[in-house]
Design a protein around this nucleic acid. Structure first.
Lengths: 145, 145
DNA sequence: TTCCTTGCAAACGATTTGCATTGGA
DNA sequence: TCCAATGCAAATCGTTTGCAAGGAA
C-alpha cells in the first residue's frame, strides 16, 4: 500500500467519522495482499494474532461502509471481501468450473466500452440506475480443459 | 410448465433415484412463475401452505442436485434459487444494492451477440475454454433510487 | 473528557440434520 | 414391503450486537 493510497483511505474513513486504526490497516493490507476475495475466517487465519472474529467483522463493516472494500457473495453462506475497485482496478472474473479457480481479467478499454454500452441498453428506460456491472465468464482453464 | 418439460424433469430426478413429488412440483412451479431468483423464505410465502422451511430446503437441495434449479448467491447471507437455464432460457441479473431485489433481464439477440463477442475476445488465446457467462448489473431500482 | 474501538459472550438468522412418521410404487 | 419423503425440533454456522473496558484526540 503506497503512502498516497494510505492517506486516501484515511480521508475516506475520516469522512465517516471513524479512525484508520492499526487493526483496520492490517485487515486492508491482508486483503490487498491476497490473491482473491477473503472471508472473515480466512483473514482470521491470514492475520493470525488471536484477533477475535467479531473485531474482524467490525473492521470489515467499517471498511465496507467507507467504500474501501466490497463484499463478494460467491459462495454458499459466505461473504468474502476484496479491495474496492478504486484500489484494485475494475476487472471481471474468469471461473473454472472444474477446479474452482477464479482469475481476474481486465478488459481492454474498447471492450470495456462495448460492455458498458450493452449494460446501458439492457436496462433501457426501466428506471433502474446503473452503478456498476460484473461479468463472470465460466468455463475450463487450460489445465482442466 | 409444459408436459414435456415436466417429463424431462422427472427423468432427471429419476436418474438421481428420487421422485418428482407434488411438493417438489409446487416448488419448481413457483420458481418458474417467479420473475427472478427466490429464497426459501420467499418461496415459503409464495406457496403459503404452511409448508415447513425444512421441507423447502430439502426440496431445493434435491432439485439442485439434479441440475433442475441453480443457486444464486447475490445477497448477503441468502441463497436464492432459479430454474436452470435449460428450463428458463439464458438471462442476466439486475441487482438493487439497496433492497437486494434481483430481477432477470433477457438481452435482445443483438446485444447478447455483442456480449458473446466481448467474452470471446476477453479470454483471447489464454487457453481458457468458455462455457458460459453471466452479467450482473448493480445499482438501484426505481423504488430505492 | 468525549467519542471511537475492542473483547467477550450472548443473540441472531439462515440453513442443516436426527429421528420418528407417513406415503408411494 | 421397502425405501424415499416429510415434519418437528434441535443443532450448526456464519455473522451481529449489547455491554463494559481500553485508547486516542
Amino acid at each position: 500500500m503506497t503512502g498516497s493510497i494510505d492517506r486516501q483511505v484515511e480521508a475516506q474513513l475520516r469522512a465517516d467519522g471513524v479512525r484508520f486504526t492499526e487493526r483496520r490497516r492490517a485487515v486492508l493490507r491482508a486483503l490487498v495482499r491476497a490473491e482473491g476475495p477473503r472471508s472473515a475466517a480466512e483473514l482470521h487465519t491470514d492475520l493470525d494474532r488471536g484477533i477475535p472474529l467479531s473485531s474482524l467483522y467490525r473492521s470489515l463493516a467499517v471498511l465496507e461502509a467507507a467504500g474501501v472494500v466490497v463484499p463478494h457473495h460467491g459462495t454458499r453462506g459466505l461473504t468474502r471481501y476484496e479491495p474496492a475497485e478504486w484500489l484494485s482496478g475494475h476487472h471481471h472474473h474468469v471461473v473454472c468450473a472444474a477446479c474452482g479457480a477464479v482469475e481476474d481479467v481486465e478488459l481492454p478499454p474498447e471492450l470495456e466500452g462495448e460492455l458498458q454500452a450493452v449494460v446501458t441498453r439492457a436496462v433501457g428506460g426501466s428506471g433502474f440506475s446503473v452503478r456498476g456491472h460484473s461479468l463472470e465468464i465460466d468455463g475450463r482453464c487450460r489445465r482442466c480443459a
